[in-house]
Computed example of a mutant assay.
Amino acid sequence: MKAELKKRLPAETYAKYERMEACHANGMENLPLFMGAVILGNMAGLPQGELASFSASFLAVRVAYTAAYITTSTQAPTLVRSGLWIASVSMCFRTIIRAAGAMATEV
């Protein structure tokens, strides 16, 4: 199917299709980390407002990441995309670490 698409679509459109597909795959790869952070935060009893803020912020960063991924066709702006990815992953690890700390104090 991809070979057929590549033949039929202009090169720029096909490149955008490939970026969209890669962005989707990256989102699916990061979903377990986000879900784990939310679940662990709930298990640890982190404040609901904090978890809601984390979730909203994470999703906002991922929307910006998606926009940056799809619209970037040259190498230089990929630093912005990488920075957004690092920010989203860091947010998840921060929440997981806070949950671990909260669970450790309960013992």
Rank of each mutant, 00 (worst) to 15 (best):
T78H: 14
A56D: 06
A87H: 05
R98H: 07
S73L: 02
V80H: 05
S82A: 15
I97E: 07
A64G: 10
T95E: 06
G101K: 04
I70P: 00
A100H: 11
R81D: 00
R94N: 14
V89L: 14
T78E: 11
A67K: 09
Y65H: 14
A76P: 11
P77K: 06
A87W: 10
R98Y: 04
W85Y: 12
V80I: 15
L84F: 02
L84K: 01
A67N: 05
V61Q: 03
S90Q: 04
A64P: 01
S57V: 00
A67I: 14
F93Y: 13
V61G: 06
V89M: 03
R94P: 04
F93P: 00
R81E: 04
A67W: 11
R94G: 13
C92Q: 07
R62K: 12
C92M: 11
R81I: 03
A64E: 05
R62H: 09
A99T: 02
A68S: 14
S90A: 15
W85D: 03
T66N: 09
A56F: 08
I70K: 02
V61C: 11
A99G: 01
P77R: 07
T78I: 10
T71G: 15
W85R: 06
P77S: 01
I86R: 12
I96Y: 06
C92N: 10
S73T: 14
G101S: 00
F58K: 01
G101C: 02
R81S: 02
V80G: 00
L79W: 09
R81P: 06
V80W: 07
V63L: 11
A100S: 13
A56E: 01
F58A: 05
V89I: 11
A60M: 08
Y69N: 02
A76N: 09
Y69D: 03
L79E: 06
